[in-house]
Design a protein around this nucleic acid. Sequence first.
RNA 1: GUGGUCGUAGCUCAGUUGGUUAGAGCGAUAGAUUGUGGAUCUAUAGGUCGUGGGUUCAAGCCCCAUCUUCCACC
Length: 376
Amino acid sequence: MKFDISYRDHGTSARAGLLSTDHGDIASPFFMPVGTAGTIKALHVKDLREEVKAQIMLSNTYHLYLRPGAHIVSAAGGLHKFNGWDKPILTDSGGYQIYSLGDIRKFTDDGVIFQSHIDGSRHVFTPEKAIDVQRQLGADIIMAFDECTPYPCDQAYALKSMKRTHYWLTRCMSHFAQTECPHGYTQSLFPIVQGSVFPELRVESARFIAQQDAPGNAIGGLSVGEPAGIMYDMTGLVCGILPDNRPRYLMGVGTPANILESIALGIDMFDCVMPTRNGRNGMLFTRNGIINIKNEKWKGDFSALEEQGEVYADLQYNKAFLRHLFMSKEILGAMIATMHNLGFYMWLMKEARNQIIQGTFSGWKETMVKQLMQRL
RNA sequence: GUGGUCGUAGCUCAGUUGGUUAGAGCGAUAGAUUGUGGAUCUAUAGGUCGUGGGUUCAAGCCCCAUCUUCCACC
C-alpha cells in the first residue's frame, strides 16, 4: 500500500492524495459506503460502480463471520470474488458491532465473549481471531480489533479501555505479521486510536499508534453521542500526532458537515451508515439541504430529486413519486434514496478534493456546511 | 314481522359496581438516527361514545324510542 499526498490546503490541514492498493487506486479524501453483510443494501454492484462511482466499499467482519461464515467467503476466493466488487474493500474488525449490537457480552483482556444477534449462539473473538477472519475475508484494508469506548464514560474506564485496545493491537500486529492473505494479494492493517473525550488519553493513544508505523491509522470511539465540538477537538488533537504521510481514517463519521470539518482537520477516509440507512428511512441529502421525503409538503412536488445530480435516479424520479414509494413502503423507494444519497456523498468528496487542489477549500467549506445541513 | 345482537379516534378494539380531563395498537403528522437489524425511539394531532329523550349529584355504562350491523325463526 502506498499513499501519496499531491496537494495541501493553505488555510486548513486538508490534503488531497492517492492511496494505492492491489485492487486499484483511490483518490483522497474519500468516503466508503457501508455494506455490512457484503452488500450495500438496496444497491446493485453495477450501480455502486457505474452510477455512484464508489472507489472502495466497507464491509463487516462480525456480520460475515456469523453469516454466511468466513470459510464460505474464503472458499469463494475472498470477498471481492464472493460479491463481485473488484475494487478495494475495507473490513471493520467487529469490535464496534460487539459494542453496539451485543446485549450480552463480556470483555476480558484476552478478548470478548458475545452472543450472536441472529441466533443467540455464543462466540469468542480475540485479536488473533479477528485477524484470521479478516485474512479469510480478504479485504485490502483490515482493522485492528478494538474496544469502542462507550460515551459517556469516566476517565478511569476510558484509560482501562484504551490500554486494552493497545494491548490487543500488539497482538493483532504480531499475528498479522505471522500470517498471510490466502488469496494472493496484499492486505494492510490499520490500528485505531481510542481515549474517549479525554485529551490526555487521546494524546497518549495517538502517540502509541503513531509508533507502530502502520500504513494507515484510524480514529475510533467518536461520533458515539458526544457533542460535535468535542469530536472536532479530539480529531484535531489526534491528527496533529498521527504520521502526516499516512492516510487518516475517522471511523463512523458522519454528516456532510462532520466530514467537511474533519477533512479540514486532516482526515482522509470516512465511512458512515447515514447516507444508506437514513436514506432507506426517507432522509435525502441534497446540494441544497436535507429533505425528509415522507413530509406531506412533497406530496405534489414533481421536481427532480437533484437537478444537478449525477446518478440515474436523480433526474429519472421526482419527489412526489419517491414520497409515494416511501408511504407505500415500496422497495424501489429505498433503492432510489440509497443511490441518490451515495451519489451525493461521492459528489461531496470529489468536490472537496477539487477545492483542495484549487486552493479554495476553506471558504467553500464554510458555505457548504451551512447550506448542506439546512432542513428543506 | 318476531326474538336476539352490534354501534366508542381514519381502521381494529379496550373501557371494572354508574364516579377525575374516555384509552391502546395500527395509521396519520412531525422529530431523532454517525465503524447498519429495510430497524428502532420520541412527540403531536385526532372523539357530539349511532341518534333523540329519560333516570341520577354524576351516564360510554341504567331505562324508553329510533336508526344501523349481523344471526335465528316466522
